[in-house]
Design a protein around this nucleic acid. Structure first.
Lengths: 192, 192
DNA sequence: GTCAATCAATAGCGATCGCTACAGAATGGA
DNA sequence: TCCATTCTGTAGCGATCGCTATTGATTGAC
């Protein structure tokens, strides 16, 4: 029944595929690049992962779950403002980590729109909680603010791909924080 | 000396190429897609524009000049804050204009990094002028603010490609404005 | 040891990639 | 009119694309 065991570590190969997709994006990554990065021949790749699209989906799911864990960790902070600051700070550092490709696969890859919407939704939920906790102004438009934050994160990812440094991204993050508790100026003055 | 005249309008063909590049990006746009969009056969394309890369450069230069004109128009507004608001508002509308592809070629295409840097520089110059005019706080970090604005514009472009509406982008733009004159909170309170 | 099952590697499929050789059509100058 | 020149379209170049038929190697079950 049981035949010859596979000669490579599936998880390690998946990780290598993720890094390649991360570095060059879905369309620009050829199967030849993947097999080279994974140390696997094409038939093994297709036997283990189906096809290029499914390999990408599996790899991007790993990536997505990592991202969600980081966001959940930040969301656990006591105030919405602190949570947002943490997400922005983490992102600035992660996007320029020399140990990984620049930028963020989830924010850069066109076909991961659904994951971006999930991220947006999580941010909005945390902001809504912040409004209930009264650490954000009651008049805060959390929809706009969440979309704004995703846009900033995405912009940071693009800047990182263009060669921005950690300090550049931290500057963007710090500037973006200026928009977080100031959606309604009357409330801001009162609230402070 | 003069041989057979070309049978197509070069500028019109260039415009069609621009739209195709705008819609699908450089790498994802094949020469076959270009010839189809331009109504021209491959040899005519190569005779008139050199090769795919040079055609892209010519088309993106047209696009870049249009963008610069719009930014210069906004920069002519009396206050830096008004200029930034205008750029954000224009961008929100342009990125969702049904007459053109969603998003912005200059902000989305990886190989147009140099143009993004020029845009960033123009924004920074206008912000510096705003500091000199005292309509921005003296402590404003115009480098960070300019990088932030490019990141937001870029995020808006990506959101538009994901299907965001004009209203979505206007919400992002409005939220981003909250970060413009609030870089230093002490100055903000005094200044208002 | 034998066999069924599962893997790995070579080699190459049809399609598309960016690009061009070639030949015919259309022009202005002599 | 005839030629040099330039454009146009067909047809196809070599390379790469995503993917797979085929074969031989390696395993556990019996």
């Amino acid at each position: 029944m049981a035949g010859r065991p596979r000669s490579f570590d599936r998880d390690a190969a998946l990780g290598a595929a993720l890094e390649q997709f991360w570095r060059t994006g879905y369309e620009e990554t050829s199967v030849a690049m993947l097999t080279s990065a994974m140390g696997v021949t094409p038939p093994s790749l297709y036997a283990a992962f189906g096809d290029k699209r499914r390999l990408f989906e599996e790899a991007s799911t790993v990536y997505f779950q990592r991202t969600c864990e980081a966001v959940d960790l930040a969301a656990a902070l006591p105030s919405a403002r602190a949570a947002v600051a943490r997400v922005l700070d983490d992102t600035a550092r992660a996007h320029t980590d020399p140990a990984t490709p620049a930028g963020c696969l989830m924010l850069t890859e066109p076909r991961l729109e659904a994951q971006r919407e999930v991220l947006r939704r999580r941010l909005k939920d945390r902001l809504d909680q912040g409004v209930r906790d009264r650490d954000l102004a009651a008049s805060t438009n959390t929809d706009h603010l969440a979309s704004f934050l995703v846009a900033v994160l995405r912009g940071m990812s693009g800047s990182a791909r263009d060669g921005a440094t950690t300090e550049d991204l931290l500057g963007i993050a710090e500037t973006a924080m200026g928009a977080v508790h100031q959606v309604d100026r009357a409330d801001r003055v009162v609230g402070d």
